[in-house]
Computed example of a mutant assay.
Amino acid sequence: MSATGLEVFDTTLHKTHAWLKAIMEALGLEDRHRAYMALRAVLHALRDRLPVEEVAQLGAELPMLVRGLYYEGWDPTGKPLKERHKEEFLAHVARELRTPSGPALDPEAAARAVFQVLAQKVSEGEIRDVQNLLPKELRELWPR
């Protein structure tokens, strides 16, 4: 039985749920909303750190629904940000994670979990391209 009546929407919902489940497992969460917040925060911080061309190339490999949240609110003016140190990047993630309720997720754990899922779900070549554009400190957040 189709959830939406459109196969393309059902497919992206299924893929997005799989991504969120993997993030929940990596973070030891049972809350899908917190996994969504981690995915969104890390994708936004990564997106804002990449050159515009690479933002589009990575976005093209994301499931449709994930791609929508990746681009949500994006303004390419002044991008990429020059966050060269892990602390700067994680501060960006922390700002995106801020919510009025509930304890905040650890931004480093969130980054590592999302990067792990990206490394599993996005082509190896695209992940290599993204990593090669990042400073060493940020590459160290990715799984080996």
Rank of each mutant, 00 (worst) to 15 (best):
F89Q: 07
A113G: 01
R112L: 08
A45R: 12
E88P: 08
L65S: 13
R84H: 12
G68H: 02
E53Y: 04
A38E: 12
L20C: 12
W19K: 06
L81C: 08
R128Y: 06
K21A: 10
E88F: 11
L39F: 14
E137D: 09
Q116W: 01
L13M: 13
F9K: 03
P100I: 01
Q116G: 08
K82N: 09
R128M: 04
E61Y: 02
R34Q: 09
Q116S: 06
E87T: 04
L6P: 04
K86I: 09
G125S: 03
G68S: 07
A56I: 01
M64F: 04
H44V: 15
D48M: 11
V117N: 09
H85E: 14
L118A: 04
V66W: 00
L39P: 13
F9L: 10
V42S: 05
L20H: 01
K15V: 03
R47V: 02
E25Q: 13
P100S: 00
P63L: 05
T99A: 14
L27F: 14
E108R: 15
N132I: 12
G102F: 11
H85P: 03
R32E: 03
R34V: 04
K79L: 13
Q120Y: 09
A3R: 03
M1T: 12
A26F: 13
L118M: 08
M24A: 08
L138W: 00
L134A: 15
V52Q: 15
G5P: 05
V130N: 01
G28W: 12
F9Q: 05
R49K: 14
D10V: 11
L81H: 15
E30F: 09
H92Q: 13
H33N: 09
E53N: 10
K21E: 15
L6C: 06
E88S: 11
R139E: 05
P51H: 10
R128T: 15
L29T: 02
E137R: 10
D48S: 12
P143A: 05
V93R: 02
D48Y: 11
H14I: 01
G5Q: 14
R40W: 04
A119D: 02
S101F: 15
P63Y: 04
A109H: 04
R98M: 15
M64G: 00
T4V: 01
K136M: 10
W142T: 04
K86V: 08
L138V: 06
L141E: 02
A113L: 07
M1P: 14
L29Q: 02
G5Y: 11
P51S: 14
G102K: 12
L81V: 10
H85I: 15
L69G: 02
A18T: 04
L27E: 08
E54V: 14
K136C: 06
L62Y: 01
E30I: 07
F9H: 05
